[in-house]
């Protein structure tokens, strides 16, 4: 495996399967009364969050702590960054503190890539701008595999704001590697220009795609990024691309519904769909801790260069 995890595209099939298989064994740790392993004792993991994200940060924090690593949380608010410190100086500070891994969330695409050239430890991308979020894709693949048994040949439909979604991009890359067939469904205004070169299909008609989907993943409509009239109204978006009860009924009986959270109930997904037994939304959170444990173990558990 690579020393860093920056893009889901960096993972070969063997690497990806090793992470999923490791997570499968680690999932059992969460079921026991002592949910802790001594494996990363004496290693330091820094959570470097330039963007707010409670769930990803606490997920990484829980994962690192279950492996007995020391965790330092660094959030941009109220820190040296708000005094104007550059990313490089922040990186050198962390380096001097002896960070074995830096988990970074940044609003600029490519920030983790730059960081990796400045620090000796492993860099884990926890979401950079509209680029990638590889551990989210891994936990999604893990959740799918646990529900469906395997990913080879499975049809995964990802619906919503693909343009701003790092989750969609990472999922397309990883699921392609794992042999699943991905279809993106979105209004044309919410698809990136480059989507034609991605290893997936594109459709504008959700109703046509639903009946042949094994997995339907709804993306959050990121209101904070809806600054250029991408669609006429929320109501129209919800009508055309929201997963409501009627659309849910068109899905095959054993198909599952996913959402990376946080979700807008009633907007991209109806409440009764989100709460259905075929929704994996709550599992995805638990699987997030497990998959991050697996990644931290594989990156930091052995000898490090």
């Amino acid at each position: 495996m690579n020393r860093h995890l920056i893009s889901a595209g960096d993972l070969g099939k063997d690497d990806a399967l090793l992470i999923l298989d490791t997570a499968e064994e680690l999932a059992r740790v969460s079921e026991r009364s002592i949910k802790k392993l001594p494996t990363l004792r004496g290693r330091t993991v820094v959570n470097l969050f330039f963007e707010d994200s409670t769930r990803t940060r606490i997920s990484f924090e829980a994962a690192a702590k279950r492996l007995s690593a020391d965790v330092i949380n660094f959030s941009a608010k109220g820190s040296s960054v708000s005094k104007g410190e550059s990313l490089k100086d922040t990186a050198l500070t962390l380096e001097a503190m002896g960070a074995d891994a830096v988990v970074i969330r940044h609003s600029a695409s490519g920030a983790p890539h730059r960081l990796a050239t400045w620090v000796r430890g492993s860099v884990l991308n926890a979401g950079d701008g509209t680029h990638e979020h590889p551990t989210q894709a891994l936990l999604d693949a893990f959740s799918m595999r646990r529900r469906l048994g395997g990913l080879e040949g499975r049809k995964v439909t990802i619906v919503g704001d693909v343009l701003h979604s790092r989750v969609a991009r990472s999922n397309v890359l990883l699921l392609g590697t794992l042999g699943a067939e991905v279809t993106l469904v979105a209004p044309p205004t919410l698809l990136p220009v480059s989507v034609g070169s991605w290893p997936c299909e594109v459709s504008y008609d959700l109703d046509a795609v639903l009946p042949k989907s094994d997995v339907v993943m709804m993306l959050r409509v990121q209101k904070e990024r809806m600054n250029a009239a991408y669609f006429p109204s929320e109501r129209e978006y919800s009508r055309r691309y929201g997963l409501d009860r009627d659309r849910f009924a068109k899905m095959p009986d054993d198909a599952i519904v996913m959402h990376p959270g946080p979700m807008n109930r009633g907007m991209e997904i109806a409440a009764e769909v989100a709460d259905s037994p075929r929704s994996t939304i709550v599992e995805q959170v638990a699987n997030g801790v497990t998959i991050r444990m697996a990644v931290l173990y594989l990156l930091l558990g052995g000898e490090t260069a």
Binding site: M1, L18, D21, T22, E25, L26, L37, P38, T39, L67, Y297, L298, L299, L300, G301, G302, E303, T304
Partner: peptide, 14 residues
């Protein structure tokens, strides 16, 4: 995960 020689070799499968 409990081995004392984990750091001597690359991380191994569980």
């Amino acid at each position: 995960m409990y081995r004392d020689d984990l750091r001597l070799r690359p991380a191994r499968p569980l």
